[in-house]
Simulated assay, not measured.
Amino acid sequence: MSDNYTLLIRNMVCPRCLKVVTEELEKLQLPPVDVQLGKVELAAEPDAQQLRQLKEALLQNGFELLEDKKAELVEKVKIAIIELIRSGEVENLTTNISDYLSEAIGRDYHYLSSLFPAEEGVTIARYVVLQKVERAKELLAYNELSLSQISYRLGYSSVAHLSGQFRQVTGMSPSEYKKSAVQSRKPLDQII
């Protein structure tokens, strides 16, 4: 059994986030044993002053130390969704998102689906759509894949399905978005 001390951190959703959090921990002489999306393992528990300084440093960088169990669970759901969509594995998903999340988080989906909107203000299904549309915007900007390929990669049943959700979220079709001079994208931690 490990004697490591675990910290869960909100909005830690990308590789750059890992780097920033690692740097902040090292500045406070709290070298991490392991750093993952939303989670840090330390060799020992920080003292009260280190914990206060860490909270401040995290807040200055757009992160938040999670101390509430429900908030921790919601953050795990968000990270599982982001990792699934960004990994490109959503196209190979052999089950539905609810079963995937239940298995990945180890909790009943009904509980997760009632907890998530209470904490985040949107349903899990809506959060998945928002993350998929943001990933589609990114892939469109790269101009390496056709809309059909993007649709498949994001697990849509058709281009029309992707286009409909894209229009619903952005107010324009993927083609219009691609042609527009202003291709606004959001950081992953601000998608709600």
Rank of each mutant, 00 (worst) to 15 (best):
A48Q: 06
L130H: 15
C17D: 07
S157A: 14
S173D: 00
K76G: 01
A43V: 05
V169E: 15
G38Y: 09
A43K: 12
S98C: 05
S163D: 04
L54W: 08
Q50M: 08
Y152V: 00
G121S: 12
R16M: 11
L28Q: 04
L42I: 07
E120K: 15
D108H: 10
R185H: 07
Q60M: 10
T170C: 08
V40A: 11
N61T: 03
Q50N: 11
A57Q: 15
E138I: 08
I85M: 03
Q49V: 02
A80E: 10
K137W: 06
Y5R: 03
Y156D: 06
L54S: 02
F116W: 10
A160F: 12
A43L: 09
T22H: 11
K39N: 04
L25P: 01
Q168M: 09
S146I: 03
R135C: 09
T22F: 07
Y177C: 00
E26K: 08
Y156L: 04
R126D: 15
I192Y: 15
D99C: 05
L59M: 07
L66N: 06
I79F: 09
Y109K: 09
R107T: 02
T94G: 14
D34T: 13
P32S: 08
E41A: 14
Y100M: 08
E67M: 04
K69F: 12
M172W: 02
A104P: 04
L8K: 11
K69E: 15
K19Y: 13
L73C: 11
E144I: 02
A118I: 12
I97E: 06
R107P: 00
G88K: 06
D99Y: 15
K78C: 05
S2Y: 13
F116A: 02
L154P: 01
V21A: 03
K55V: 00
A181M: 09
D99V: 10
A48P: 01
A48T: 03
D47P: 01
L84T: 07
E67V: 09
L145F: 14
L140S: 10
E23F: 04
S175A: 06
G164R: 15
E89A: 00
E67D: 10
V169A: 07
V35I: 08
Q36P: 00
G38F: 09
E119S: 12
L66F: 10
N4V: 03
E26S: 02
E24W: 13
R52M: 00
N96R: 08
L147I: 12
L130A: 13
I191D: 12
C17N: 03
G106Y: 11
V128G: 07
E138N: 14
L42S: 07
H110T: 14
K70D: 14
V77I: 13
